[in-house]
Design a protein around this nucleic acid. Structure first.
Length: 584
RNA sequence: GGCUCCUUCGUCUAUCGGUUAGGACGCCUGAUUUUCAAUCAGGAAAGACGGGUUCGACUCCCGUAGGAGCUGCCA
């Protein structure tokens, strides 16, 4: 038996074990399975490169078990990125703040400078932060779900923040669509939504204070100058830097408009994002630009607002789309400039359309409300979305209740997934079967109304009992409606050609003989009806094949319907006999 | 262009260096049969490619190809 196989038996959490080892020997590249210090292996020793080497080293360990990172950030292990490596660069935090400031930060309690909340044991706070520039699409819904599950499972808080700092594009209609969509999905936040733009004053104040501390600066570049410098930087393969980052650059033109920019980390520094999904992602300082914090009208940009709000809201874990992965490095730089602590990040891959391309109107980029209108149940949406990018062994359909027990960041996948309506249908079918009959009837009525169909002519007393039989046969609400159509149809039924053909003279004659038999059935219940039908067939000396099609034609006019005995029961004795009479 | 991320059946995924690569949806065949479904039983179906490390690689490393993201006074 291999040593590896022994581990789980000897030690409750082999991951934790591997992790603790990794802390000490990460940079050696040694096997994380043993506690023995192992000298740096030859393969690694030959490497002459620096950043990429350490990056791949980090990948080697962190990719496999993102879990391991947690320990690495634990307080007992000291400051975050501090590895006992000779190559270690100066912590980027210190370079662009004033000396006294740097000293202050250096001596501040560690929780303001480095490790994650997770490690401190403080309560978990997550947030979903959509921008109200459009409906809530399925990717956003999934992000919200993950944040909600993660917080609720941990007994923490899940908050909602509307990122409306783009005044041009934010609309109230979008805000409503998002709120309604989330409400429909059942993902309620622990507290009222925070509207980001309402906090603009606070953002501005934060930026100004950062300017005073040297972490940010006022930039007086004209648009033309800026464009020229950006082009030049791009040509050089470097991130944009404003000359105004240099305090000695010049005296600002009087009364000129300015913008406030982050004084980005130095070229040779590195920003590491310990992502729970993607592993440790290292970004060179040269890749981070002097991005804008305050626009020339002094309103905050997204970059500033997220960082300040996450801080003020006490957000500990940021679970969001992959498209923010590179932003995480920028935000980390900003957070460090502020001297705040960096949340734990988990960047989940985007959802693609069924053609593998970016989601568009054509495939899945519909508002969640449109999924409701297509007849999906919210619990089915949650279950389907959960499995799009998250897994736990062979578990397939996971109820929200189970998910609240099982969800973890470790189960998040790293590759983008595609929307599959066929699978969604089958998950929905599963939840329709589990759903309460009365609730389904109500949903069916709502659905019909939303589609502009006439009100269902039967009352709940007739529809609810039928639901138990008919819901087995439908994947979505419209399909449910189709299953009910034979019940809902009004006499006299309109018949398709096939049905008319089925009602030959001979068949009608037989149905005429069947009528009194059915009329004699006292307990109108499918078991007794079935008995009567079988007896009748025996009496006629024919197989049921001679009776079924005709009876069905008379009863349903060709509409899909369940087993005839059941169909008869659901129709009721009176209606059934009347429908028989109609064909005589 | 630069940087970053991703790559197991058609789709969602399991796999933590040794498996006949497992499950689910879909698909195909059969059973059932009174329509349409449902159900049951079988089946086909995957490690992008090329190197390397190793006794052994889907798994670790490097490269290539393909896909995606960022590079906005958008978020």
């Amino acid at each position: 038996m291999s040593a590896r196989r022994c581990v789980p038996k000897l030690i409750p959490s082999h991951k934790a074990r591997a992790t603790s080892v990794r802390l000490t020997h990460a940079q050696t590249g040694s096997s994380a399975r043993t506690e023995q210090p192992i000298p740096a292996p030859k393969a690694k020793a030959t490497g002459s490169h620096k950043i990429s080497r350490s990056a791949s080293c980090a990948r080697m360990f962190c990719r496999r078990s993102p879990n391991q990172m947690r320990r690495r950030l634990s307080p007992s292990r000291g400051r975050v990125m501090r590895r006992p490596s000779p190559r270690r660069v100066v912590d980027p935090v210190f370079e662009f703040v004033s000396l006294p400031e740097a000293i202050a930060i250096m001596h501040a309690p560690t929780e303001t400078t480095g490790h994650t909340h997770e490690a401190t044991g403080s309560a978990i706070v997550t947030r979903f932060a959509p921008s109200p520039t459009g409906y809530l699409h399925i990717g956003g819904a999934r992000t919200a779900l993950f944040n909600w599950l993660f917080a609720r499972k941990a007994g923490g808080k899940y908050l909602l923040r509307i990122e409306d700092t783009d005044r041009e594009r934010s609309t109230e209609a979008a805000v409503n669509a998002i709120l309604n969509g989330l409400a429909w999905l059942g993902l309620e936040a622990d507290g009222p939504p925070l509207f980001q733009f309402a906090r603009a004053a606070r953002h501005r104040e934060a930026a100004e204070s950062l300017v005073e501390r040297g972490g940010a600066f006022r930039c007086y570049l004209t648009p033309e100058e800026e464009t020229a410098l950006k082009d030049a930087a791009r040509a050089e393969g470097k991130a944009f830097r404003s000359p105004w980052r240099n305090p000695d650059y010049g005296t600002p033109p009087p009364a000129a408009r300015y913008v406030v920019r982050l004084r980005a980390p130095g070229d040779n520094e590195r920003i590491e994002v310990a992502d729970k999904v993607q592993g440790v992602v290292t970004t060179a300082g040269r890749e981070i630009d002097d991005f804008i914090l305050l626009r020339s009208d002094l309103t905050p940009t997204y970059m500033l607002a997220v960082v300040v709000d996450d801080q003020d809201m006490g957000v500990t874990h940021v679970i969001r789309g992959d498209d923010h992965l590179t932003n995480a490095a920028r935000q980390t730089a900003l957070i460090r400039a502020f001297g705040w602590r960096v949340p734990t990040y988990a960047h989940i891959p985007l959802i693609h359309g069924d053609d593998g391309k970016k989601l568009s109107k054509r495939h899945g980029a519909l508002g969640v409300e449109e999924y409701r209108d297509m007849g999906y149940l919210p619990e089915a949406m949650r279950a389907y979305l959960l499995r799009l990018g998250w897994s736990k062994g062979d578990l397939d359909i996971v109820s929200t209740e189970q998910a609240l027990e099982l969800f973890d960041l470790e189960g998040l996948g790293r590759s983008p997934s595609r929307l599959d309506f066929a699978k969604m249908d089958s998950v929905n079918a599963h939840f329709i079967r589990l759903a309460d009959d009365q609730r389904l009837v109500s949903l069916m009525r709502e659905h019909a109304a939303r589609r502009g169909l006439p009100d269902l002519r039967l009352d709940d007393a007739a529809l609810v009992p039928a639901m138990a039989f008919l819901k087995e046969r439908a994947k979505t609400l419209p399909e449910l409606l189709t299953q009910f159509s034979f019940l809902l149809a009004e006499r006299p039924l309109t018949r398709d050609e096939k049905t008319i053909k089925a009602l030959s003279e001979e068949v009608v004659a037989r149905l005429a003989r069947l009528r009194p038999v059915l009329a004699a059935v006292e307990t109108w219940e499918h078991v007794t009806i079935k008995t009567a039908l079988d007896d009748f067939a025996a009496h006629e000396g024919v197989g049921f094949g001679k009776i079924g099609p005709g009876l069905r034609a008379a009863l349903t006019g060709g509409l899909p319907a369940p087993d005839l005995a059941i169909a008869l029961q659901l129709l009721g004795k009176t209606e059934s006999l009347l429908r028989l009479d109609d064909v005589m």
